[in-house]
């Protein structure tokens, strides 16, 4: 059992965490399993917040799109820290921050190092394309792609890039020789 000093220290951490969240304008942060229920809860929470803020309808829809695709990516593709799989849903970190002019949706999850090359190639390709190029890729993937066992259509990242009109910002941080932490940020402009 933790002693009093440890507990007091963790209270200090709560304040630090609060300050950091405020500083980075984070209005939603979560770490854990991403289930369908979580996806629904976060999207409806953000929707009602945005409605209160009177964000443009088009902005609200884009944020909703990006959140759903990001959350589903984690739930379908994240690997577990330990090899023993206890749940069908992946886990990871999910954050939404709101600045004066933009929303940022950030996800972080563990992936196998063997997946990095393919994922990086796909994201670099998406980032190299303009609006028309993305449209072509989306249509091609919809026509030729098959729904995976996990129910993914291989369209999520392309859709995010199209809906936001921004480059996908991502990074792979090495954990050990077999796993890495994949971080991705999508930006949605709050201006029409």
């Amino acid at each position: 059992m933790a002693n009093i000093e440890d507990k007091m220290e963790s209270l200090g951490f709560v304040y630090e965490f609060y300050v950091k969240m405020k500083k980075n304008k984070i209005n939603l942060a979560y770490e854990g399993e991403i289930t369908h229920q979580i996806t629904k809860a976060f999207t409806s929470l953000t929707e009602s917040n945005m409605a209160k803020e009177e964000d443009y309808n088009s902005v609200q829809k884009k944020v909703f799109h990006v959140m759903v695709e990001c959350l589903q990516n984690i739930s379908k593709h994240a690997e577990n820290r330990h090899s023993v799989v206890t749940s069908k849903d992946g886990r990871g970190i999910f954050m939404v921050s709101k600045g004066e002019t933009e929303y940022n949706v950030t996800t972080g999850n563990i992936i196998g190092n063997d997946k990095i090359l393919g994922l990086k190639k796909m994201l670099d390709n998406i980032n190299s394309l303009d609006k028309m190029g993305l449209k072509k890729l989306y249509k091609q993937q919809m026509r030729e792609g098959r729904l995976s066992d996990k129910g993914g259509a291989g369209l999520g990242f392309i859709d995010i890039a199209r809906k936001t009109g921004e480059k996908l910002i991502f990074s792979f941080l090495t954990i050990n020789e077999s796993k890495s932490f994949f971080v991705l940020t999508s930006t949605i402009s709050r201006l029409k």
Partner: peptide
């Protein structure tokens, strides 16, 4: 009103 990318494949 809205569909996710996984649904887009099924709509097709």
């Amino acid at each position: 009103e809205y569909f996710n990318t996984a649904s887009s494949k099924l709509i097709l």
